[in-house]
Design a protein around this nucleic acid. Sequence first.
DNA 1: GGTAGACCTGGACGC
DNA 2: GCGTCCAGGTCTACC
Length: 326
Amino acid sequence: MPTRLSIAVPDDFDLPRDACSYGYFLLAPNLWNPDDLSLSRPLDLDGGPAKVRIRQPSRPGGPLRVDTDRTLDPAERAEVRAQVTRMLRLDEDASHAARFHSLDPRFKESGRFRLFRSPTLFEDVIKTVTSCNVTWTSTILMNRRLCECFGRGGSFPTAPRLARTPPALLRGRCSVGYRDRRIVEIARLFTGRAITTGATPRRIPPVDAQTLESPATTDQAVLDSLLALPGIGPYAAANIMQLLGRYSRLPLDTESVRHGKTILGFKGSPAQVMKRVREHFVPMGDQAFRSYWFELWRFYESRHGPAWTWRRDSTGRLFTSAHLST
DNA sequence: GGTAGACCTGGACGC
DNA sequence: GCGTCCAGGTCTACC
């Protein structure tokens, strides 16, 4: 027997705009359907996996209608509410929008300020690792296989599941390459265990997700904790920080260089262009990433149409340098 | 502190 | 169909 939940949202919330706002909405197990404007995916709940389908019949501001494929008990309903709230950043309201739009009024009319993310920090971290040093098509593949091979009911694999997976098996089944060991080590850290790793062995304390998610923790403390994780460098740490709602740092990569050259008109070596891109967004202060990202996103939409029209298995595969370079 | 090279995979390209 | 080259961020060794 399916369960239907109704979740209240901020007045401005618009599901197609706010769900299709960051590339992870195109990665498994997420599935955006442009035909009926719904977001579907399995969620791993205490009582087992459950598929959810999220719609917003009355937009903007109307409550979300969340349908599941099985009956949920009260505790599981609370879990779904918490995970949907995290994914869609329902806790970011008009005050967050005003803060961003006062610094960058270009996006006031569209109302863009929310950035899609995963239902758990662990999924965000692993998705970030799978996006490093690969083309977008490989990132798509890795996430699909992780869900198919190690997720319950097609959901994203949990930390305990990946923590007990042999790295070679992960590599063989999911094409994660040399990231195999790093992913397993991160999973172990998320299960509350410390590890010792590296060519010059160093001890890494367990990840305290609650502290990382807490607004009371300083940006510097979060950054230091993230950089200590295996496979997490400056780019990945900055990206995870924006996924944690901390927008002052830019995850600069080769895509930033392309953007700096073609859209912002900067010249020079990749390192010089990156430096100029970073400086360009300094005036945006603690909203720098939002300003940078929605500028980038606007470029993608100019190429491929509004993001809510993109399909995971067609348009969603086109975000490679070959398709984006001018 | 700065930097070159290794790490892997999928895709593009030439034959 | 096969071989080669390239893109991509992090880690390590070395200067």
